[in-house]
Design a protein around this nucleic acid. Sequence first.
DNA 1: ACCCTTGCCGAAACCGGTTTCGGAAATCAC
DNA 2: GTGATTTCCGAAACCGGTTTCGGCAAGGGT
Lengths: 366, 366
Amino acid sequence: MLEQRIDHKQSQRRVTISDMSAALGLTKSTVSRALNNYPDISDATRLRVTRMAEKMGYRPLSHAQAIRTGRTKSLGLVIQLSEHDAHRPFLAEFLAGVSLGASDEGYTLTVASSKSDADTQAIFRGMLQDRKADGFILQRTLRDDPRVRLLRSMDVPFVLFGRTADSEDCAWLDVAGEDAIADAVDHLVGLGHKRIGYIGGGLPYNYSALRRAGFEAAMTRQGLSMDPDIMRDGAMTRADGAAASADILSAKVPPTAIICAVDMAALGVYQTAERFGLTIGSDLSILSYDGIPEGAHATPPLSTYAVDFTACGRGLSRLLIRRISGEKPENLRELTTATFLDRGSTGVPVLQPDAVARRVAHQPIS
Amino acid sequence: MLEQRIDHKQSQRRVTISDMSAALGLTKSTVSRALNNYPDISDATRLRVTRMAEKMGYRPLSHAQAIRTGRTKSLGLVIQLSEHDAHRPFLAEFLAGVSLGASDEGYTLTVASSKSDADTQAIFRGMLQDRKADGFILQRTLRDDPRVRLLRSMDVPFVLFGRTADSEDCAWLDVAGEDAIADAVDHLVGLGHKRIGYIGGGLPYNYSALRRAGFEAAMTRQGLSMDPDIMRDGAMTRADGAAASADILSAKVPPTAIICAVDMAALGVYQTAERFGLTIGSDLSILSYDGIPEGAHATPPLSTYAVDFTACGRGLSRLLIRRISGEKPENLRELTTATFLDRGSTGVPVLQPDAVARRVAHQPIS
DNA sequence: ACCCTTGCCGAAACCGGTTTCGGAAATCAC
DNA sequence: GTGATTTCCGAAACCGGTTTCGGCAAGGGT
């Protein structure tokens, strides 16, 4: 009667290691060591134990393990509230990927959010002390990232989404944004563009440097000159992109195409282009990077190099788990590529730079 | 030497309950009961213990507590991958709110994601068995929600973001969307609109019914007739909104204003309006609900009733924690309101319905 | 035949807490 | 002043695992 009520309430009692040892006629300690691959357990016994575990559906309670081992089977993710607009649109997919990758391996994902850098450090410390996470995933790494310094000094496993300046002993997963941007240059040159502007991302972010480097490398390779007048950095939001492009298009010799390091900035360019009466895809070509859904619904749809953030998240979880398991960081690196979505914001140049300049000059500055 | 290395590595050893009992000259059990407000501890001792805990910075290790009490001090959030576009934009803010609310009370947030309904149920079960969560936050509740049924039957604490058809013994937090939509009607009537269309959200979602009810109530109150020809339901994405509005605007007597239950759908109406050559804010007024950032950057900016999702998330965490602590669900309900953002997609009607109809008729169906 | 390994498992301590139980001292009733 | 309650704390078991240690039996060497 009572048992039934209890049984009803917590649905199903967990199988404990004692249940296992009773069923097998072994001691708890033997069962535990068998499952943890201790060398002093015979293969026969180990097999018997794993079989029984399978049969009885035994899974060690991670909390119980945690108090002895210090490891919890959970990954930590700290999202910074101040994160720029540019990173927000794909948080959902990224998060989905991370959590799927974690649960695939029997890990869970613990999420915290912080308001500032100092806050982030405190959260790391707190989560570690409380053993809420065995390691961390760091997104959007900076060139010189304080988080990396902290975790490294505490000897805590972590994995970076995005390389950093000094990735020496770090595990990371990244997308070759530099290659994508270089490809963008080639694509535009193929269409006949010779004067190409560039709007880069926030300089603290490491990817900004990489993408810009990709741009410069491709431009030189193509034998095209680069003019600081039509290159800007630090554009993360729509407003940034609008401002930067207004600047660039007002140059003495404006570009016929602009490459943006970040989709969000590219959408800002749309605003400016409209203001200047420039038709995107003909008067002005735009090529960008990220693949946010919004870009598909702009007019014309934004051509961009899209990143599969779900896949990235999944990969990061896997890498981190392997790192936690003790693998060397050197073996835990993955460089993926973005896929080009040719959606319609580029075309052969119908205007020469001087014609663009005249258009711009005739528009109200508003 | 060795100690130093250890100290260096795990930064700082935790203060355990044994440290406390040693420092106080009491037994572990007394310390524990003092902190857990057992009645058989004298006030004097309790005070001494709490003071010392403060001084030494003692916090019980939740994993250790978990294996005895079954409670972990963590909240569960399962995000469904299939979730519509309409819900994605504010996941970031919502998540931030939830995690902040959790950590404010010393709880952590465990996030999992699922691909299907069945998946979700399995995840609930798994997380409960593994004691990974003491309770759950359910977002975007359906009118008849299987998650509610499951958790209720398992007697697990949970809190709803959005009321559901049968919220009897549920704790919930919601935004009075029906009031907002009703206010939208009043606002448009105040501008002189008499023929107002409505594009509702996905019918399974409970809020869709509420918002529609708000629309209908306000329309009747204003003495305006409702015409099924200019009312649609189930629009969650931009595409849905575009299709629904094309339908509505092609009616015999099209509306001069449209109210959308969801911002995303409203952005679809923008596409249709452009296609039909209707200027938003004069030829056609649009009023919507949600407050996604994208709306602010549409042309013209979308007027909408914005929800503070961070605040909602925070509130939900708080409610859930109180629920876990044993409070009755009846006392755990909060109804907040959306705030009107008058951004520019409405205006006095410059066209009569028949004029709108003529415009529409002259446009290519493309 | 003897000693020394080696392989393999059980016993017991331990991790950091919670909870039950029992009993000593203090308070109360009369 | 005695017995019956309370009040309050310590002792010990317990939760579900991990890990150290020790020892028995089988195998190897000579």
